[in-house]
Each structure stands twice: as structure tokens, then as C-alpha cells.
């Protein structure tokens, strides 16, 4: 089992991810769904960054006397992903506000109850 020790970081990440996913799927509250999405995505970011860590490495800013750097590529990707995440969040929350205006609630069930049969 010793072999698995190096993996426990991943497993924590997996746990976080699943919690986020659960929030998204299970909860009927639209804001909480967005929270879930944020948690889910942040966990994915952790997964990437964990991948890029090199033992004894430092931040990938080139300087004299340092030989080992952590992998910069995941950092780049995650920078982009964070931005994408916040963009999604902004749009999603704007929609939540509008839904609240139109329906007076942000619970999925109640929204479903308000609309009759399809047009």
C-alpha cells in the first residue's frame, strides 16, 4: 500500500470535486448550484496544479542559481480556466437574478411548478 502514498493528494482533490458535483446536481437552489460549480472547478484547478508540482522545485520564474522549477504549463492553463470559471459564474448569477425577477423564487421546484404545459 506504500505505493499509494503519493496519490493521496489526488484523492483529496477527487473528494472536493465530487462534493462540488453533488452540489450542482442535487441542490435545487440556483445560487447553491453556482457555488457547487465553483467548488467543482476549483478542485479541478487543484488537480492540474498538483500535476505540475515538482519536488524541491520553485515557482517557474527564472533566476540565477535555481535549477528545479515546477511545471509552468498547468499554471498557464489554470490561469485561463479560472478566468473562464469566473466568466461562467458572472453569467450564471446574472441569469439567477433575472430568474428571480421573472419567477419570484430561485428554487428549481417552485419554478417548475409555476410554468404550465409547454407552449
Amino acid at each position: 500500500m506504500v505505493d499509494f502514498v503519493g496519490l493521496y493528494n489526488y484523492w483529496i482533490v477527487v473528494f472536493l470535486m465530487m462534493a462540488g458535483l453533488y452540489l450542482v446536481i442535487e441542490h435545487g437552489n440556483l445560487v447553491k448550484k453556482m457555488v457547487g460549480l465553483t467548488v467543482f472547478q476549483a478542485a479541478v484547478f487543484l488537480l492540474y496544479i498538483t500535476l505540475g508540482k515538482v519536488r524541491d522545485g520553485t515557482a517557474p520564474i527564472i533566476a540565477e542559481g535555481i535549477e528545479t522549477y515546477s511545471n509552468p504549463l498547468p499554471h498557464v492553463l489554470i490561469l485561463t480556466a479560472i478566468v473562464v470559471g469566473v466568466a461562467t459564474l458572472a453569467l450564471g448569477l446574472a441569469l439567477v437574478v433575472r430568474i428571480r425577477d421573472a419567477y419570484g423564487t430561485i428554487e428549481e421546484d417552485e419554478i417548475g411548478d409555476q410554468d404550465g404545459p409547454a407552449i
Binding site: F45, L46, I49, T50, G52, K53, V54, G57, T58, A59, P60, I61, Y69, S70, P74, H75, I78, L79, I82, V83
Partner: peptide, 12 residues
């Protein structure tokens, strides 16, 4: 992220 050397990411 800082611990994992991803300073830029941490900042963001």
C-alpha cells in the same frame, strides 16, 4: 497553490 509553486495562479 502557493505551496505548490503556482504563485501566479494563487494570486489570481
Amino acid at each position: 497553490f502557493v505551496v505548490l509553486d503556482a504563485v501566479d495562479v494563487a494570486f489570481t
